[in-house]
Amino acid sequence: MSRTSRDRDDEGRARSARPRDGLGRPLPYGAEGVDRQPEGVVRSPGETLAEAQRLLNAGMPFHAHEVLEDAWKSGPDEERGLWRGLAQLAVGLTHAARGNAAGGAALLARGAESIVPYGAQGPYGIDVVGLTCWAAALRDDLRRDGSPVPAAARAPRLRMR
Rank of each mutant, 00 (worst) to 15 (best):
R20S: 03
R18T: 05
G111H: 07
E66H: 05
S114Q: 08
L93M: 08
G130E: 03
R139Q: 15
A152G: 10
P156V: 08
Q37W: 01
A14K: 09
D9F: 02
G81I: 02
G46M: 07
A97S: 00
M1N: 14
L93W: 10
P123W: 05
W134A: 09
T4C: 13
P19T: 10
P76E: 01
N57F: 04
A96F: 10
R43G: 04
S2D: 15
P19E: 00
A152V: 05
E113Q: 12
P38K: 09
D127Q: 11
D10R: 05
G119D: 09
M60Y: 02
D145Q: 01
G30F: 06
G46C: 03
L49S: 04
P61R: 07
P150T: 14
G125F: 00
A135M: 00
N100E: 06
A87N: 06
G12I: 03
A153K: 14
R154W: 12
S2C: 13
R6V: 12
L138D: 10
C133D: 15
R15Q: 15
L56W: 01
G33D: 11
G130H: 01
S5R: 15
L158N: 03
L107V: 02
V42Y: 01
N57W: 05
V67L: 08
A105V: 09
W83N: 04
R13E: 13
E47R: 09
G122W: 04
A101P: 09
T132F: 03
M60F: 05
A17D: 15
E32K: 13
R110S: 12
I126P: 06
E66W: 02
G12E: 03
S147R: 13
G103L: 03
E47S: 09
I115K: 00
D35V: 13
D127R: 08
T94Y: 08
H63C: 10
A120P: 14
S16I: 04
K73W: 09
A112D: 10
H65F: 11
P148T: 11
L56M: 00
D70G: 11
I126L: 01
P45H: 10
S2K: 14
K73Y: 03
D140G: 13
S44A: 03
E78A: 13
E78H: 15
D35Y: 04
G75D: 08
G22I: 06
E51P: 08
R25F: 11
C133I: 13
W134K: 01
L82G: 07
G59A: 01
R54I: 02
Y118I: 01
F62C: 12
L93I: 04
A101F: 06
V67E: 08
